Amino acid sequence: MPWLSIVIPAYNEAGRLPHTLTVIQRYLATQPFTSEVLVVDDGSSDATADLAAAMPGVEVLRLDHRGKGFAVRAGALAARGHYVLLSDADLAVPVEEWVRLEQMLQDGYEVVIGSREGVGATRDGEPWYRHVMGRVFNGLIALIALRGINDTQCGFKAMPRHVAHDLFRRVRIYGDDAPVLQGAAVTAYDVELLFLARKMGYRIAEVPVRWHYGTETKVNPLRDSWRNLRDVVTVRLNDLRGRYRAAPITLDSSEEGWRDTVPPKNL
């Protein structure tokens, strides 16, 4: 069992992904622990999957195009590492920031999320209107579904594998029956994930990180703002309808004994 699984959802990322994977592999080669890199191809129409598969040490999951939330879920459920790190294909948060999240995990937090807000966080190259959009959306999230988290949408998140498997088996919006989509689809799957984490009683920590705005972003301000708002409202409605009951989830034998069988780092 590797110490760390890095899960990277990707949709038409042939231009950026090879560089991202090279940077990640160089970083992992300097670390004293075992790891795996999972690229989850979200039904790309370009060479994303083939380019990723050609990279040494990279495993590729090929899916229908059902959106980032569905892709992240598939990757998290396939991860074998003691810890699971979610990262965007543009590596907007440098992979080196992992050590800050890992420290919080080892301090006992069970869901640790990178944050572009707070003391120590930096936002490089972000247009002012995108920052305003993010703050307005986060305010709506707090009003409708999830208070007390400054930045739900940063793609850099980590958790122990048993927590990742538990939460992603519970999600409803982008679960097994998620529809096939057309075009890029930025979603608010993060809100449902964090809502469930809080409901299940997991300890959540925000860690300020360095973040760089990608000029090749796939965000459509009008279309994706509406889709994200719809997702947030759906989370609240699902909870009111009792769809997020805290019923036990069956774990496999390796997940059940995770606290007693922490794999040693390979020094």
Rank of each mutant, 00 (worst) to 15 (best):
P248K: 00
D42V: 06
N238M: 07
D252V: 09
A54K: 13
V72K: 06
V99C: 11
N228A: 15
E110S: 05
R169W: 02
P9E: 10
E102R: 11
L17C: 04
D260F: 14
S253D: 14
E117N: 12
A197C: 02
G120A: 03
D260P: 10
K199G: 04
D107L: 09
L167W: 01
A197E: 06
A29E: 11
R100Y: 01
N12F: 02
Y189Q: 14
G257S: 13
A71D: 08
Q106T: 14
C154T: 10
P56A: 13
A188L: 08
F137S: 13
D231C: 09
L240H: 01
T30N: 12
G139P: 07
E96A: 15
I249H: 05
D107V: 04
R245L: 14
T152H: 08
L28P: 05
S115K: 00
Y213F: 11
L17Q: 00
V207H: 02
I6S: 00
L229F: 14
P2H: 11
V84Q: 01
A49M: 07
A79T: 10
V136C: 10
Y189V: 12
D42E: 06
L167N: 03
I141C: 07
G75N: 05
T30Y: 12
H82M: 03
R243Y: 12
A49E: 07
D177T: 14
V180T: 15
R130C: 06
S44A: 09
A54L: 11
A78D: 07
L181N: 04
G139C: 06
W226I: 15
S5Q: 05
G75E: 06
K265V: 13
A92L: 12
V235F: 03
V111P: 01
G183K: 11
A71T: 09
V191S: 03
A76P: 02
G134M: 05
